[in-house]
Design a protein around this nucleic acid. Sequence first.
DNA 1: ATGAAAGCGCTAACAT
DNA 2: ATGTTAGCGCTTTCAT
Lengths: 343, 343
Amino acid sequence: MTARTRKPPTLEDVAREARVSLKTASRVLNGAINVRQEKADRVRAVMERIGYRPNELARSLMTRKSSVIGMIVANLANPFITSVIHEVQEVARSHGYVAIVTSSKGRPDIERMEIETLVRRRIDGLILAPAESRRDTITDALPNDLPLVTLDQLVRGASFDSVTITNRRSACDATQHLLGHGYRRIVAIGTRPHLYTSKERITGYRESMRRASFEPRVCCVDHEDLLTSEWFDKEVIRGQSADAVLSLNWVTTLHFLRGLDALGIRGGRNIPFIAFDDFDLGDVLSPRLTVVRQPSELLGRESAQLLFDRMNGKRRPKPDAVVLPAGLIIRESCGCKGSRSSS
Amino acid sequence: MTARTRKPPTLEDVAREARVSLKTASRVLNGAINVRQEKADRVRAVMERIGYRPNELARSLMTRKSSVIGMIVANLANPFITSVIHEVQEVARSHGYVAIVTSSKGRPDIERMEIETLVRRRIDGLILAPAESRRDTITDALPNDLPLVTLDQLVRGASFDSVTITNRRSACDATQHLLGHGYRRIVAIGTRPHLYTSKERITGYRESMRRASFEPRVCCVDHEDLLTSEWFDKEVIRGQSADAVLSLNWVTTLHFLRGLDALGIRGGRNIPFIAFDDFDLGDVLSPRLTVVRQPSELLGRESAQLLFDRMNGKRRPKPDAVVLPAGLIIRESCGCKGSRSSS
DNA sequence: ATGAAAGCGCTAACAT
DNA sequence: ATGTTAGCGCTTTCAT
């Protein structure tokens, strides 16, 4: 065993060294005003000298407030989510909180376990990007008084705050844009069609197609592993004779572009193409990706702010359902003429 | 205030309801064997019924073990780091731990504050991707007995474990590969040249150039904001008449490709090009990116494993310095003929 | 196998 | 302005 040299100093050690009572030391620690300057200085000097670090665990136990929020996401690899996390952490830090971020891998069973460990650690609030759109899988695992904000996926009939984007509307806009280019056999591709976001985006797509009197063509798989180049070739390209594609999420786009590439097809060039979610190099890809860009920073800030408001009782009892706009970033892959100089 | 309806049940509540002593309930909770089956079942039934959740905070206070590790990274947006985090969390979870991951933004002052908050929360170990390569900024803020593993940046003269990659060697290989294509005015570009990783990579690059009797050309800036297209044009392209480029890190590559694009130049096509760190679409980009790929999953697993070994006293007292190989993924941007079918 | 008492390091409530 | 006494929810002696 690594012998921890000695126990770290406690507030009692500080008090003894500074010849004040424990409570006075505590007051100094918490910046209380009613302490004589002289004693306060003495206490602070001792703290500095012996390297005192307050034990946040002990404090939390007493105050019933851990100063920790939890955040559960589906997939850490998605840069969209990374950006959300970053903003959440900024807000958390500004409130003196830290965030424990874990991943559910999109699986409700893992999500449940993650919730359990977070609850045991007595988090003060939770930001959850649900693995499913079902309410009971979440509420069952949660103390009913834990402030909760859901993100991305909307959980219907839920009694907690949510932050989502204009899924339907943005899918509508994207489809319309492709229709405007004259494409008619536009195929929507994606994963996990039963998810709220998928359903909404598909609905938006369908609306646009119907309005234009074209037949909607939706190709979805249950798991991303099924997004092989063979599948794209057979189901999308040939099966639907696609003349344009709308990709409903990040992971689909990733596999789609790789799959096409393996087939010797250039996404966006040979097949016009709009995707939900941007990529780090989406603006440099050839052709540049036209995407529906989720306002990830805003999503992070809004959801965290909502959570802290709720934790501080600053909101109406009624849950808030914030919907943020996701805008179409028109570049080239949709068929628009880009401004790329040479090639 | 949101009135938390009622205090969550404690082990004492469980014990009372199950008509056993507090200690017996505790034994059941911790899976001790010396409890009569009948009582154990009763206790478990009560726990289930009243929705008891052990308070990890209280347990931690007593056991002096928080079951939390900290992880501080420079930049959450870098997909390489995301992948490391994911693996660290997997290892942590397998040990019954959670990880609190925070970002230093590459700034030592923020790093220091983050260390402080983590120490106050009594983390049992820390995985740190240092913002700088200086030892004292780290050790000053840290209890000297806290198990620590550094990642990515090596801190010289340090007495803790580290996990790094073959920076010098990989830079050497990458440069050699470009030289093999016949380029001689190869320019190494990057940020923060004083960092360990930068220095090592630059050294590797210089070695290769010298060995081939070509003049090394290094263009670095102190902050990524200075990586403008004007800078690339003036300093790299024209200033050095570069006929090939070696990008020393992810953020540089990102700005480089965008900058070139703004100049109407295709990275990899017009300017042959190898980069440290891969991109999500690096294999689909035209031309496909030739990269030095850091074994991020392995880095995550190794560093976490090292940390837990250290925490459990399973290592020799001497600090370990693990060096993992980063391999060259040869695609097209270096000038190699790709296998892309059409274009 | 079981329980009573002490205590982890801090803050809350009530003194003074 | 300062100190005293409890006690947060658990685990750890040390009895029995």
